[in-house]
Nucleic acid binder design. Structure first.
Ligand SMILES: [Mn+2]
Ligand SMILES: [Mn+2]
Ligand SMILES: [Zn+2]
Ligand SMILES: [Zn+2]
Lengths: 167, 167
DNA sequence: GTCTAGTTTTGAGTTATTCAAAACACCACT
DNA sequence: AGTGGTGTTTTGAATAACTCAAAACTAGAC
């Protein structure tokens, strides 16, 4: 026995988060956030190709702009591992860290042991006012470690033997 | 009363380190190592300009090649902070970490509290065989923190108000 | 001294990203 | 509901950092 009329616009939590961050709600922004919802740690071009599926007119530059805007207001986090283009994810505000496979580039989240940022502080801060400790663990992912070709010399960012999952 | 003749070539520790690493000793390689000796955390182009002073014919591509070769054998360390080109330094083998000013890009070394790499290990390694934990502390350097213009919003990688010292 | 694998030069190409001007659209206000 | 203005996106171009490849050269083994 709900009323027959319902004029209230559907409360889209994605749109609300964008508006609450002080940004205008636009189709490219919603599409980028939606794409990031099910693909963590993807580069701008991967986001671009995903967005194109639902919003074909979108330009790559728009995706760069949207990612920059969303990162600027804290709705998206940007992460720049050496040897990879910048990666983006929606998991923000929990100061977690990353495992990167130095062979295939696969990335996994690791929870921060300490919790709040900065989770670590150096003994001598050299006068810096530190706000973040970024920790990147480099190693071989289970799949790459299992491959006997990778048993020697674990540091190798040039050859990728198995398909990359991210991105 | 030393003998009048001394045919033994002067033992250049730089050349020796290159040879001991299994690489041929060449002028560009010595020049790059020499340049890095008094400039820590510099990018390839800065090394290139320094090398040109003593070895004018050297090409930028040679510098990239030398830096890659020296990094490959562990004589030089490469470090890739977000928003900056790759930086190189001669301080290797001690697994130290870095402080980066998010405003002006200044970099300072910080000793690793633990010592040997990987100095940290995540609670859940997700099957990774970890060999390195890279820690980058982001914050405002003393100079940037003193500037009242930077008192609000500490994260700002777009505007640089004072001269950058590195690189 | 000669030879050769390793290195550098020369020249070009690529990737990831940024910049700028013009067209467009969200939404505050009437 | 219509309109205006500012923030956003498109269109088009440029850039920085780096990589690739072939030809010329050279350190060091013999
Ligand atoms: Mn993550
Ligand atoms: Mn250092
Ligand atoms: Zn892997
Ligand atoms: Zn600074």
């Amino acid at each position: 026995m709900t009323p027959t009329r319902n004029d209230a616009p559907p409360v889209d939590p994605l749109a609300t988060s964008i508006r609450d961050a002080g940004l205008k709600v636009t189709a490219p922004r919603v599409a980028v956030l939606t794409a990031l919802a099910d693909m963590p740690h993807v580069d701008a071009d991967t986001v671009f190709r995903a967005v194109r599926e639902t919003l074909p007119g979108t330009s790559l530059q728009a995706v760069y702009g949207v990612l920059g805007a969303l990162t600027g207001v804290g709705l998206v986090r940007r992460f720049d591992p050496a040897g990879s283009p910048a990666l983006f994810e929606r998991r923000v505000g929990d100061n977690h860290h990353h495992l990167v496979c130095s062979h295939c580039g696969t990335i996994r989240d690791v929870d921060c042991v300490i919790g709040a940022a900065p989770c670590l502080t150096p003994v001598d801060t050299a006068g810096f006012r530190i706000h973040t400790a970024e920790v990147t663990f480099w190693g071989l992912c289970a799949e790459c470690a299992a491959d006997p070709r990778n048993s020697s010399d674990p540091i190798d960012s040039t050859t990728h033997t198995h398909s990359e999952e991210t991105p």
